[in-house]
Every structure is written in structure tokens, then in C-alpha cells.
Design a protein around this nucleic acid. Structure first.
Lengths: 157, 157
DNA sequence: CCGAAGTCGATGCGTTTGCATGGATATCGG
DNA sequence: CCGATATCCATGCAAACGCATCGACTTCGG
């Protein structure tokens, strides 16, 4: 039997509504960030790759591992890396322990670019995220999003 | 003076970390949703348009208003609507009160498509979001994301 | 060992995207 | 009322994307 309509949403509805809220909030903010032209010579996705690399030890990662963190198909990432490499922002190296692998490493110019864009991006974040939520709410949001993301590792395909 | 490193992140760091967590969580989930091939004949962005229309009174909206909700440039939305129109999932109408405007209306086929894909998508959501957070956490996440999104309306460009 | 199956990254190709622009209508200011 | 400005949507075009596929290498099973 379908439960009667009630003010208490079912668990499925709750999950769907939460996802929708998350999705819309992200969209709204991305639109704001895109409007501030803070991305001077690179795109948001390219910045995402530089940023991800900047947080890795030695600023390097296997292409394959990078692909797990970035929302981009493998061929698209391959070409994006090619572009950034041509621009001198990173370089490719062979993986000595696995002949199939390619390792990408941030160059000094790439790190400088990440920091430069990152600073401006942070200004945008402070501007659009800061006034919306107080400290405790920010911490809670961060905690829940991290939990949601990390839970994916233990949910099979 | 730069404050000394401390376990208490500054407000700017707090905002940046929250945004990053939100962004990564959304990326991780989108990847999951894309992997479940639930999007049979349409793309996620096309579904987003059908979904948005399905929640409007009379299943209709001005192109311009649609563009505010969907993360897509105006020309891209224009062509996306053209594709969906060609596929018979929606139709365009002239706006009688504004000669510049175009109104898009979901057709029966479009609504059926939205519901069909939506059902499968909901299954994915339950699967990937459901186990990660409990009811209260879901409600909190939804509340904070809504607050974050709605706050944008009162933050100037 | 060796052959089969799997993984990794690059490339061909058609589709979709964003930017710049244009034409049409609406709104604003005098 | 009219010219100037702004808004709305469409279109040309180059860049970027995803899918399918390929060659190279690794891993697995006998």
C-alpha cells in the first residue's frame, strides 16, 4: 500500500530532496563563480586539475588517480592535461613502476597559476558562501558533504 | 599580521573548505549517477530541463526563466531546447505578453520521459545518498543547501 | 613460463558547449 | 512621441566533451 500523503517525507523523498538541494546550491554557486571572471587564462575544470595536484605530495599524481577525483571522462582529462602541458603549467613523466602509467607534475608556473587563480577564487567564495551561513553551519555542511562523499567508497557499483 | 597557524580555521578557510566539500560531494555523486545508465535516451542536462519544467505550473516556463535555474549558457539552452523540441518532448510557444519571449511547454511524451527517467534516477539517489546519512542529517543537509542557494538572491554581483 | 584477460592512456569522430554577435521587441528618458 | 538603451532568443564558429577504439603494458591462471 502506498502510504497516505503526509507531512513526513519518506526516506526516499528525503534523499531525493537533499540531493536536489545539493545540486541546485552547487549550480547556483558555480554560476556565481563563473560570472566573476576569476579564471583568467584557464577554465574552471583546468583549475580543478591544478588545484588537485597542488594538494598532492610533490605536486604529482598518476593520470588515473587524478581521473578519480575530477568529474571528466578519461579522454577529456587526457586532452586537458595535454593542453596544460603545452601551456607549461604541468609536465608528464613516465611511471617507472608501471609502463602503462603517466604521471603529471605541476611545474613552478603551474603552481603559481593555481595560487593566483586560487586567491581570486577564494575571494569569490568568501563573498558568496560567507554571508549565507554562520561558522557552525559551515562546519556542519562540510562535515555532511565529506561524509556523503566518503560513504561512496563503501557503496558498491 | 597573519594569525599564527591554529586548529581554528579562519572564516575564509571555513567557507573555502565547505565549498570544496560541497563541490567534491556533488562530483562524486554525479559520477555515480552517470555510471548507472539511467539516462537512456537523454542526457543529464536534458533531464534537468525536463525535471525543472515538470515542477512548474502547467509544465511551462519562459526560456529566460529556465535559464536561471539550469547551469547552461543561454545559447546552449537554446539549442538543447531545440533538440528536445525536435524529439517531441517539449514544444515552443510565443509569449503573447512579450514578443521577444519564447515559452517552452512539456509535452505528454516529455512528461512521460521525465517520469520514467526520474524513477530510475530516484533509485540511484536512494542507493548512493540513502546509506550515507541518516534522516536528520539529510534534513540538515537539505536545509543548509537551500539556505546557501537562496542567500544568493540577496548577494549582489 | 606463456597465453588470455584486464588496465592505462591516446586518438578518431560526431556532438555539445561557450563566446561573440545579430535581429527583433520592449523599456526608458526627454 | 521618438530615439537610445536594454532584454530576449537564435546562429556562426571554434573549442571542449564523451564514446568507441586502439596499442602498449601488466596481471592472472594454468
Amino acid at each position: 500500500m502506498t502510504p497516505p500523503p503526509s507531512p513526513e517525507p519518506s526516506r526516499t523523498e528525503l534523499a531525493a530532496e537533499s540531493w536536489e538541494a545539493l545540486f541546485r546550491a552547487q549550480s547556483a554557486l558555480l554560476r556565481r563563480f563563473a560570472a566573476d571572471d576569476v579564471w583568467s587564462p584557464i577554465s574552471l575544470r583546468e583549475y580543478d586539475v591544478l588545484f588537485t595536484l597542488s594538494r598532492r605530495p610533490d605536486h604529482r599524481a598518476r593520470l588515473r588517480d587524478l581521473n578519480r577525483e575530477v568529474l571528466l571522462s578519461q579522454p577529456s582529462l587526457s586532452r586537458l592535461v595535454e593542453r596544460l602541458s603545452d601551456a607549461g603549467l604541468l609536465r608528464r613523466e613516465a611511471d617507472r613502476s608501471d609502463g602503462r602509467g603517466t604521471i603529471v607534475v605541476l611545474t613552478d608556473a603551474g603552481l603559481a597559476m593555481q595560487r593566483s587563480v586560487g586567491r581570486r577564487h577564494t575571494t569569490s567564495i568568501r563573498r558568496y558562501v560567507g554571508p549565507a551561513l554562520d561558522d557552525e553551519e559551515l562546519r556542519t555542511l562540510q562535515r555532511l558533504c565529506d561524509k556523503l562523499r566518503l560513504a561512496q567508497e563503501s557503496i558498491p557499483d
